[in-house]
Design a protein around this nucleic acid. Structure first.
Length: 259
DNA sequence: ATGACGGTGTGGCACCGA
């Protein structure tokens, strides 16, 4: 089976591209971030016609996450239990596979803007809450995938300018420590389980010809639990949609699992 | 040091993203 994550930067604008992409890449599950639409505007019928079920958690203008799935998503959780949040950033569900249930946690992690800002404080608190909730989720669901837009470049090789951007947003020691602490729960970065081309990124700034110059960051990730690790067969970033007219600034990341 | 690009909602722009 295949699962993917894609920050679409407005599902209203990108819906035709998402449907085109699914037609070419018929993944079993697609985690979307930055829907930027309220729940009543979610295009369920379009996904149903493409053969998918869906669960979503949106809000007006900002944020918003969804799971697009061949099989029914059950045991839904929206946002981090016990952590009061005005922003719609997490949706979790269980889907059935041939080998049993798979828990999927889709997150649109906080950006944080600037390490000195209040938004960065929110980012750290949100990451603390996510980690502590995931600890329990992993105990309950050993077969778990955490995927989405993490807004963290985990290592220097995940940035086009690690020296120039040192300790700026996405690159700070505090964010990278949070990423490592997620791994220490018993999760692995599926992208780094395989040989990958150098200078591989999943996001490029719209401005200053960012994509054309490959000035990007790898901030979209798929983490798999220890119980799934042996089943992961491949992880790739699909740069193709970034070349389409009016693209999202993020590219999809696809993981192939032997499930 | 700033803005560049794109989306949203508003209102003739500001805010936000990364």
């Amino acid at each position: 089976m295949q699962i993917a994550t894609w920050n679409v930067n407005s599902l209203s604008v990108r819906l035709p591209q998402v449907l085109d992409w699914l037609a070419d890449n018929p993944v079993d599950l697609l985690a979307l971030q930055e829907l930027k639409l309220s729940d009543d505007k979610f295009p369920l019928e379009a996904f149903a016609q493409a053969g998918y079920q869906a669960a979503w958690f949106g809000q007006k203008t900002y944020n918003g996450v969804a799971l697009i799935s061949r099989s029914e998503p059950t045991d839904l959780v929206r946002n981090i239990p016990g952590y009061a949040d005005e922003q719609s950033r997490v949706i979790a569900a269980t889907i059935e596979t041939a080998q049993g249930p798979l828990r999927v946690v889709n997150g649109y992690f906080v950006n944080g803007q600037d390490p000195e800002s209040e938004k960065f404080v929110y980012k750290m608190q949100w990451l603390d809450a996510l980690r502590e909730w995931l600890r329990g989720e992993l105990a309950q669901h050993p077969r778990l995938v955490l995927l989405g837009d993490f807004n963290i470049a985990p290592e220097d090789r995940d940035s086009y300018d690690p020296e120039g951007l040192r300790e700026t947003i996405h690159h700070t020691s505090a964010e990278r420590r949070q990423f490592r602490e997620l791994l220490e729960l018993g999760l692995s970065d599926s992208y780094r389980m395989f040989e990958q081309p150098p200078k591989s990124y999943s996001w490029w700034d719209y401005r200053m010809l960012g994509f054309q110059k490959n000035r990007g960051l790898r901030i979209d990730h798929v983490l798999v639990s220890d119980a799934l690790k042996a089943q992961v067969k491949a992880c790739v970033i699909d740069r193709a949609p970034r070349k389409w007219p009016k693209p999202s600034d993020h590219a999809p990341v696809i993981v192939t699992l032997d499930l």
